[in-house]
């Protein structure tokens, strides 16, 4: 299946993947409003590690045998048998962080999510942008340091 792979040798640490991810997963899909006015502020699901001269953007790899799915307490994380994608149901998530503990890539983060009147801290991970043909981070990367590929 196609997932996003980082190509470390070309990552220039511009953080635009993070901005694109945050924007794509915002209500307004506008970077300015996503950052300035949306409450709670959306959080990028990819993260740029930066140790000059090295940089790399890392997000969920949608593992065939996903350790996050195996660790999830209540089935909020599941593998979609049709697409192969690892899907997170944020409305169901208990915020127990078992997935964060289990993910060997450190690719699951946290986000505050409004549910009715309350705000819950829930897990947050790459969903490969279901509304887009190519994930936002890949489209935003100016140097092809992120590619959307099927490597078998």
């Amino acid at each position: 299946m196609k997932v996003v792979y980082p190509r470390e040798q070309w990552c220039v640490a511009c953080n635009l993947c993070e901005v694109a991810c945050m924007t794509e997963h915002s209500k307004t899909k506008d970077p300015l409003k996503a950052y300035r006015t949306e409450k709670p502020r959306p959080v990028s699901r990819t993260r740029v590690e930066y140790r000059p001269p090295l940089a790399i953007s890392i997000m969920c790899r949608h593992c065939a045998e996903a350790e996050c799915v195996e660790a999830c307490k209540n089935g909020s994380l599941t593998r979609n048998e049709v697409t192969g994608r690892i899907e997170l149901d944020q409305d169901k998530c208990l915020g127990c962080w078992m997935c964060i503990m289990a993910c060997p890539y450190g690719a699951i983060g946290q986000v505050t999510r409004p549910v009715g009147q309350e705000e819950r801290r829930v897990a947050n991970k790459c969903d490969l942008c279901p509304d887009r043909e190519v994930p936002a981070c890949v489209s935003a990367c100016p140097n092809r340091a992120l590619v959307f590929e099927d490597r078998g």
């Binding site: 470390e8 590690e49 930066y50 890392i58 060997p104 890539y105 490597r151």
Partner: peptide, 17 residues
């Protein structure tokens, strides 16, 4: 990952998970 050896990183991040 950038604090870890390049070989480990490549093994982890360039192959399907």
């Amino acid at each position: 990952f950038l604090d870890l050896p390049k070989e480990f990183r490549d093994e982890m991040l360039t192959k399907p998970g």
